[in-house]
Write a protein that binds this DNA or RNA. Structure first.
Lengths: 208, 208
DNA sequence: TGAAACTAAACAAACGTTTAATTAAAACAC
DNA sequence: GTGTTTTAATTAAACGTTTGTTTAGTTTCA
């Protein structure tokens, strides 16, 4: 039936877009990879652009969850929330790295206003959530008066940098081509540990 | 004559690629924007792909300079070198943000092996240079034994995050569309101050 | 006069999309 | 349940554009 096949096309599209880009992927490539007729993509989604929008709509909601509940967890202090945020972000972004790469490709481009706005509206709540935790921590006196916007940039930017290109990531890690860091628990732990260390000392160290 | 016009085409290409992407920019768009005949691009560069490679070759060397001399400056201690690195990177990446965005777009994509390798070989020396300063600082006892590779990721990743999309950057800064942060000295200073603060306390604070 | 710079036009191939026809599934009457 | 009608799903083929590239001819200037 329709729905599963639509989702199959979307998942195939994410894989292809992540590797070849949106413009670089023809609907013939996509149809062949998904094992469907060329016309089915327009039949289901209307156009290539609308397929992209459907893809974003479908995956965005799924990706957004589980963060707000950290905020509402009153048993955690601000530093504890930051730790949970770091863990949640590394897990989520590493797992959804293909989708993440696709929307960041499109975010980089200046044309296609509507798509860009769409993507900004997906990513913005994430950064806002972290910002709010920082502001709360500062208000309660638990955190130093740091530059909250740029601290958010440091957290997410570090992860994005590692996700941007597997080849480049392997190069700076001095690893072989066969190693897949994003699926290695040890590497994920390493990233979490680094980010928690950086943020913790930046936020809670009291300068004399 | 030829050379200035070649460079003019390359500069126009950077502007267009940064906004529309490599695949999204037709050589007709490019020829029109540069004010030259369509055939001139293939006449000068051979093909669209070779134009890209020429662009990278031309701009890469120019972008690479001025960093190694920081390394060789023996009057600076490790912390001083990091400060200079931060200042140099923010200035350079903000100034060359269009070129920077173009090569990061291409770096994200998995196909076009040769181009990817080319770009990795451009970016790698930068990260290696920072890494070496960190290693030297650790060896001399001036720095803590931090995760050097991920500390590099935090430095460059933070800047990249801000450069990725003007629209998104403005959103997290809560600024209006007309503001151009990358050309604002105040914002550049803000980014430098944040990065120096984060790195300094991460690297030189002695945990009890 | 001859080589380099430049142009307009044409090229085949690939693109996203649409059409028209066929098959499969569901809905309905009896 | 069986036969009929309607709707949805699927297909191969064709559509008109746009793509990167090339050709063949013209201008420019030393």
């Amino acid at each position: 039936m329709g729905t599963d096949k639509k989702e199959h096309i979307i998942n195939t599209a994410i894989e292809l877009f992540a590797v070849k880009g949106f413009e670089g992927t023809s609907i013939r490539d996509l149809a062949a990879a998904a094992g469907v007729n060329i016309a089915m993509i327009n039949y289901y989604f209307g156009s290539k652009e609308k397929l992209f929008e459907s893809m974003v709509e479908e995956k965005a909601a799924y990706t957004r969850i589980e963060l707000t509940e950290i905020m509402s967890n009153t048993s955690l202090n601000a530093a504890g929330k930051i730790d949970r945020i770091v863990e949640g972000f590394v897990e989520r972004l590493f797992r959804n790295r293909h989708f993440h790469r696709v929307i960041h490709q499109e975010l980089m481009l200046g044309d296609r206003q509507a798509m860009q706005d769409m993507i900004v509206n997906i990513l913005y709540p994430n950064s806002q959530l972290i910002k709010q935790i920082l502001l709360d921590g500062i208000a309660s006196g638990e955190f130093n008066k740091v530059d909250v916007e740029l601290t958010v940039a440091t957290l997410i930017g570090t992860i994005n940098y590692l996700l941007q290109s597997k080849k480049f990531c392997l190069k700076i890690l001095d690893e072989t081509e066969t190693y897949v860091p994003y699926e290695d628990e040890e590497f994920k732990t390493r990233v979490k540990t680094h980010l928690k260390a950086v943020l913790h000392i930046h936020l809670v160290h009291q300068p004399k």
